[in-house]
Design a binder for these strands. Structure first.
Lengths: 164, 164
DNA sequence: AGTGAAAAGTTTAGCCG
DNA sequence: CGGCTAAACTTTTCACT
């Protein structure tokens, strides 16, 4: 099993989180290795859960989900049951891509992907507003995406040591 | 070139956005086709820009980016230059995974991935607060992720017609 | 841990219905 | 537009260092 990542593991993770189609051969060349150790390391990283999944990122405009809303929700009641049942209900909705429970006044932040404002209105009226225990809802729409990364910032061990 | 997606295209996109490692053979079996048309359709979907990229999703806790913050920013000045230069500066920061320009009182919503509160504080002090034109900053931390999808909700044409 | 070569699996291309 | 077959490429496994 993996105890700690070395720089080669970190570089493999970084290559894959930017382009999951990078071949083991390409990685091997960049890392100055052959394909075998790269392949073995990837399998170990997958098994140990460092890599959760591989996904394709689609163009939201092309598939007609041009409207992205960040919707913040405050509940009226904050018992464990109330929080759980809200979360359970909302995560089932297909339009809700993300549901984050937050610190501060806002209880939940949802990321909603939908066709247009008309459909967002329907979503609010027919689905969200029908949930029990909703206190207040604020909708913020995305005007432009300056950055939309799925990759986390990774730091090599050598660089970390430099910083010390 | 692709004019409109048929249901087979949509199902291919949906399979890939949930698991980019699905082989053409598996898709072909699910779709009742052979690998050739699946392979051809995927290439066309890539070329037409429906599929933007393939990425690996990492486990943030395992790579020590356990703290996720949604940070909302109001600027003092809202000229085009002011907005642009803020966005340009902030998208360069590695900790900033997403930068959305929003409607409403909040100008920008940032998603920040970082090790812990201590490093978030350093990020705020040393990087974010040093930018010109910052009006106010509110930090909201993620307590738990109820849902974190990268896949958009897709609808088959048959289902759409049912809805009519 | 890594190398090199062989085996298995996957994707792509050509040709035909 | 899809099926079939062959070629190219990629990933995985094995013996060896």
């Amino acid at each position: 099993m993996i105890t700690e990542l070395d720089d080669i593991d970190i570089r493999i993770l970084d290559l894959l989180q930017h382009d999951a189609r990078t071949t083991t051969k390409e990685m091997a060349d960049k890392l100055g290795l052959t394909v075998t150790p790269v392949s073995v390391r990837i399998r170990k990283l997958e098994e140990a859960g460092y890599i959760k999944r591989y996904v394709a990122i689609l163009d939201k405009d092309k598939i007609e989900k041009s409207l992205i809303a960040f919707t913040s929700i405050q509940l009226r009641e904050h018992s464990q049951d109330a929080l759980r049942s809200f979360e359970k209900a909302v995560t089932k909705m297909r339009e809700v891509m993300e549901c984050h429970r937050l610190t501060g006044r806002t209880d939940f932040l949802l990321k909603i992907a939908i066709r247009d404002m008309n459909e967002y209105n329907n979503f609010l009226m027919d689905k969200l507003a029908k949930l029990a225990n909703i206190g207040s809802v604020q909708s913020h729409f995305v005007l432009s995406e300056g950055k939309a990364e799925t990759a986390y910032p990774l730091t090599l061990n050598i660089q970390k040591e430099k910083g010390k």
